[in-house]
């Protein structure tokens, strides 16, 4: 899958500030299958906003986003949600498990949307891959921060997505676990997925093919492992 974003801009209305705050201005980016793209930059520079726009979670104020030839802004919310569910995986910045579901059920959540929720094999494989097998029937409330993080990453993989968007995926993790996560993301890219990582973690650079730096809403390409 090739994701193409052109002239992306985003502005917000913020409480206590007159007018709008410009977060992104005329940003272009291309994401290719088989590549890990790392976006770094200072806090508040607009990295997560760009990631959310690319993943289809957030609508840009201006510009276009194409998944291959599909203009995502021309899709209805239901169509876009289904496309996101089938073709993308999203790893959020904070702990994001549904407390009323077990670990296995949380992992299978995206499959439930497309009616493949009974695929226990898919869940079991991911549980093993991320070291969560013994916690399969546990509730998220009893998991540590690292386990929860691994859970949300495993969930992003369940539908074998063609694109993965990871927002600070190693936030609460130690080096060992961080490596595990980056290795899995690298593997996904090697398997043909387009992977976008927003991260401050220096370790991420080791796994990235392309590195961008976000500064005051503008994206610049840095030298990396290209």
């Amino acid at each position: 899958m090739i994701i193409t974003a052109r002239n992306i801009s985003k502005s917000y209305k913020r409480k206590g500030i007159s007018g709008e705050v410009q977060v992104l201005c005329s940003t272009d980016i291309d994401l290719e299958s088989g590549k890990v793209c790392l976006i770094n930059g200072r806090s508040g520079s607009g990295k997560s906003t760009l990631l959310n726009i690319l993943s289809g979670l957030l609508c840009a104020s201006g510009g276009t986003v194409h998944y291959d030839s599909t203009d995502v802004y021309k899709l209805s919310d239901t169509e876009l949600s289904l496309l996101r569910c089938r073709q993308t995986g999203y790893i959020p910045q904070v702990q994001s498990a549904v407390g009323t579901l077990t670990v296995r059920e949380n992992i299978l959540l995206p499959s439930a949307v497309i009616g493949k929720g009974k695929d226990r094999f898919a869940a079991d494989g991911l549980l093993e891959r991320f070291g969560l097998t013994e916690l399969a029937d546990a509730r998220p409330g009893s998991l540590s921060g690292g386990e929860l993080r691994r859970l949300s990453i495993a969930r992003a993989f369940v539908n074998s997505p063609q694109a993965i968007f990871a927002d600070e995926p190693t936030n609460d993790l130690d080096d060992e676990n961080s490596r595990l996560v980056f290795e899995q993301l690298r593997k996904a890219a090697d398997g043909g997925a387009a992977v976008v990582i927003v991260s401050h973690d220096r370790l991420a650079q080791e796994y990235a093919d392309v590195v961008y730096c976000m500064q005051q809403g503008s994206l610049s390409r840095e030298k990396g492992r290209i």
Binding site: L57, D77, T78, L80, S81, L82, R84, C85, R86, Y90, P92, S96, A97, V98, L109, P110, V113, I114, R155
Partner: peptide
């Protein structure tokens, strides 16, 4: 927000 992120429509 989690449900939305995994593909639930509005």
């Amino acid at each position: 927000a989690v449900l939305r992120a995994v593909g639930f429509s509005r």
